[in-house]
Design a protein around this nucleic acid. Structure first.
Lengths: 225, 225
DNA sequence: ACCCAAATACTCCTTGACGAGTAATCGTGA
DNA sequence: TCACGATTACTCGTCAAGGAGTATTTGGGT
């Protein structure tokens, strides 16, 4: 079985897809990925790239084909994909598409700690986020339209369409939350206000004494489940 | 100035918010965060926790108040938040809410490499994802309803509402993509099919020779920008 | 009275990400 | 023609994340 940890870095998958096209040396992979704007979707830097390539070679998913030296410049090692590499690539990519994975988003973390901020500060920050999102969405729309105008098929811009869809959903969510705070409709708002009212500070987390339905009682040894 | 790198791990922020309520030792912070289901939103494990706490102490955002020893068990060091810590907490949390950050999502990576899979395999994987998403959304809906029924205010479940909104948007996107591939409406589909047709393999990335509008020509030295 | 599982409260070590650094060569404008 | 900045192609050191391990104690059943 392929160990789970080996599939942690998507950059390795990107390397495999590069070598699917033709043999390359690592630096050329980086150029190729950059030229196709993959670095917008996949973390890519030299420090990791060479490490990832070595790991793939150790796992026999790629093999060094030749090493060329032009003048006295550092030698380029050209890699090619193996049969096992082809299989691993298809399998990994299929899995990545088929199975949603838990992601730890910054904004999710922020929302989960939001009560640690006074309501008015939280509201101000939310307004800023809304504006930033509006700008970002407009820019992304423009970029997609430009790509379309240049004749780039949608097939090669699926990831930006997806990100755009997520951003729009986030904007709607932020708009709704902002309104619900301002209108006082959000339940728990009274408690929240009272913690920061002069002379308040009583009653912190009266809610937390109850059992929280979202928490599963499994996983005794591991903390993260 | 607070160095950017110091704000990389949201677990540190969670620690600060714990100590905002009352002094605690690290293990108790973990219990508290777990009891409130924060580990669903914030990566939490002991290995990181103690390192993060040490770093916060070094930055003078928290300080050790006392160390107690019960019997011969390992001693517990109880920490409290400092004034600088209070300020850092509010500032960091505000920033996290106000400024959207670039996230590298697994599915985004997968979509950006999708052409490396034959169209029919891609389609099969997408169908699987759709089903998984439908199930997950239903489960989350149930959990949120249960929490509501138990009287937990919305304020303390904002993060799951947000995740739910993202999942729904993703489901809609996947449904649309599936349909556009099946109906043949997706532009580039003909090229895609031809690469995997028997005798095909010609014309890989004819599109890539053009300048890609999504790629910004900045950042010469750094690869990731 | 005793046994075993779970909880308490950490420690340690391996991996791996990341960014800065390096050294040679190529292009280009004055 | 020649300086100088960009490009090519990688290397190295640091630092943090994460999981597995450890030693003690409490609790619950028989």
């Amino acid at each position: 079985m392929t160990p789970r940890s080996a599939r942690s870095n998507p950059l390795a998958l990107a390397v495999l897809t590069c070598l699917l096209e033709r043999p390359m040396h690592p630096y050329e992979m980086a150029q190729t990925l950059r030229a196709r704007a993959k670095h917008e979707s996949i973390r890519l830097n030299y420090g990791s790239l060479y490490g990832v390539v070595e790991a793939l070679e150790k796992r026999q998913l790629i093999r060094a084909r030749e090493t060329v030296r032009a003048g006295r410049r550092p030698e380029r090692t050209i890699y090619e994909i193996t049969d096992a590499g082809l299989r691993e690539m298809a399998d990994w990519l299929s899995e990545l598409v088929a199975a949603p994975t838990k992601e730890y988003l910054q904004f999710e973390a922020a929302l989960s700690l939001l009560p640690a901020l006074p309501p008015d500060e939280a509201l101000a920050a939310l307004k800023q986020r809304r504006e930033s999102l509006e700008i970002e969405i407009a820019l992304l729309d423009g970029a997609v339209a430009a790509a379309r105008a240049h004749g780039m098929p949608r097939l090669f811009a699926l990831e930006s369409e997806y990100v755009q869809a997520l951003r729009r959903a986030e904007l709607e969510y932020v708009e709704r939350l902002e309104k619900d705070i301002e209108s006082g409709e959000l339940s728990g708002l009274d408690q929240w206000r009272s913690w920061y009212a002069p002379g308040g500070e009583r009653d912190l987390d009266a809610h937390a004494s109850d059992e929280i339905p979202g928490a599963d009682p499994s996983n005794p040894s591991s903390i993260t489940s």
